[in-house]
């Protein structure tokens, strides 16, 4: 019988077995990728590092997790009612203002959220990490803002 070479290979016993193996391993793999997604670290997208004064003051930089806050508050609460500008490090926040009830202190006052004497809840960043929007498109397209912790602070 004369037949096409490739068809002949696919119809051979080993060919079929290999093909089946590939298909039957690929389907659960695809399901797993869809269900589990990629790296979970990207869930920290939009974390804001604020290091305007922290390094100089001997504190770890503050890390603000957007994902944590937006479960509880719409954007407008902080960016309109409280008045945070849409600019990482652009609000010139310091602890005096916070204790006075401005910025973070509008909620972190023991009434809406925990008080500011839990320093390390916010000041949890690696020393030397520059002010940034973590995982931002601009950060990805331009240059990595994350420097090794060993690099001296500005």
């Amino acid at each position: 019988m004369k037949c096409n070479k490739s068809v002949g290979l696919a119809r051979s016993g080993i060919g079929v077995a290999v093909f089946r193996l590939a298909v039957f391993l690929a389907i659960p793999a695809l399901v797993a990728v869809i269900v589990l997604g990629g790296s979970p670290a990207r869930a920290e997208y939009a974390d804001i590092v604020i290091n305007n004064y922290s390094d100089a003051a001997g504190m770890r930089p503050a890390v603000f997790p957007h994902w944590f806050h937006r479960i509880r508050f719409r954007c407008k609460v902080c960016h309109a009612d409280i008045g945070f500008k849409f600019k990482a490090g652009g609000n010139e926040i310091n602890m005096l203002k916070i204790i006075n009830g401005e910025f973070c202190g509008a909620c972190h006052n023991g009434e809406i959220a925990w008080t500011v004497d839990n320093c390390d809840f916010c000041h949890s960043g690696k020393p030397g990490t520059p002010t940034q929007v973590h995982g931002s498109t601009v950060q990805k397209l331009q240059k990595p803002a994350t420097q090794p912790a060993t690099q001296p602070a500005k």
């Binding site: 869930a43 960043g125 020393p127 994350t146």
Partner: peptide, 14 residues
């Protein structure tokens, strides 16, 4: 996820 995210300090007290 916080150990090697380039943000958090694993030495931080909290």
């Amino acid at each position: 996820v916080f150990v090697n995210d380039g943000l958090h300090d694993p030495q931080g007290p909290s």
